[in-house]
Every structure is written in C-alpha cells, then in structure tokens.
Amino acid sequence: MRILFLEDDVRTAQTLRRGLEGQGFEVAHAADVAAAIAQLAEGPIDAAILDVMVPGGSGYDVLERIRESRLHVPVLMLTALDGISDRVEGLDRGADDYLVKPFAFAELLARLRALLRRPAKRVDPIRVDGLEIDPIHRRVLCQGHRLDLTRTEFDLLLAFVERRGEVLNRALLLELVWGYRFDPGTNVVDVHVNRLRRKLEPLDPIRTVRGVGYAFD
C-alpha cells in the first residue's frame, strides 16, 4: 500500500517512515506542498498523512488537490495543538481523521489502519481464542461461560478484538471507549485493562507492549 506522507521535519519523517515501512507500507514522503503534489502525480496512493503546517502552503492544499482529483482515499491530518480551529477545519474540508501533534506512532498506525479498513459496524458475534463477543447484545462468552463485564470493560474488549494484533496506546483506547480525546492523567487506562484481564482469566489475550500500550493477540 502506498501512503503519501507530508511532513516537513525530516528527522521525524525518517523515523515515522521507517516505522510505516516496517509495517509493510510503501511511503511516498514529501517535505513540502510541491513535493507532495509531485508524489501524487507519480502514482496512485491508498491513503495520505498530511501535516497542516508545512513550507510552501498547508496540508489543506494537498487535501484539496486529492479531493479535486476525485481520489477516494482516506486522509489523516496532523495538526498542531495550538491550531484549535485546525481540527474542525480539517474535518470540514474532507479529512477523514486528525491527529494532534505530538502523537504516538502506535496511534498513527492504528488510525491509519482503521481508515484503510473502514470496517462496517459489526453485527455478527466475533469468535476468537475461546471468546465469543456479541456486539448487539453486548454479551461475552469465555470458554462457554457468560462474563459479567461493565460497559467500559465490554467496549474496551471490543476495541481490542476489532483491532487484533495492533498495538493500541492509552490515548487511543480512551477515545475508542469513551469517544473523547483527552488526557485522563496517570494510570487510569492501565487500571481498566488490568481489570479486564482479570475477568478474562484463565485466558490471557492482552499483551503489554512495554512503553507503548497493549495489543490483543
């Protein structure tokens, strides 16, 4: 998959590029608007990650160009925190999601995958490794036994299961469960994950990725 990646800070770009390539993406990096447009001309892309503040214009210019050429590819905008209006403006202009800088790579990856996958709302029960999760009736069977999960724990488990194998960081988990992007302070997410783990015993599907977050294997 070819990803257009517009980011002017070369060293940050290098790191993220390496990460994305490590995940099997082909990265078309551009450091300014002109380079990004040139990359668009070079070949089809499957998704775009655009920094808003770049030399020679703004990420929105590239976004507009993508939409003008009727490319139905998902676009993830990278906005600066102090450009509050950016996040609204970005979505208004047809971006599919936004990420506030600085962000965790795992979060970028998870959002990018979510955009590429665009999963339909799950209605069928999901079966994984001894777990059966029914999203409609919000029921979980663990090795045939009904689990008593709180609303939060159920949403957390669903978030993990729908993104099997992906590393989810704490901020993303919070947003997936409560729908809000905010920093709750200290170890709140860990407490929730630990409680969920205890209820899933003897299964232990949630893996801690040290320093990054959690993954459901």
Binding site: T12, T15, R18, G19, G22, V212
Partner: peptide, 18 residues
C-alpha cells in the same frame, strides 16, 4: 521543544515496537 521531544518519543516508541 515539541518537535525534538516528538522525535525522541517516536524513535524510542518505534524501537520498542520493533
């Protein structure tokens, strides 16, 4: 400070993922 700190965090995060 944001950009350099972001660089460190990205690099270390990537290392941990790899």
């Amino acid at each position: 400070l944001r950009t350099p700190v972001h660089r460190i965090a990205s690099a270390t995060e990537l290392w941990l993922l790899e």
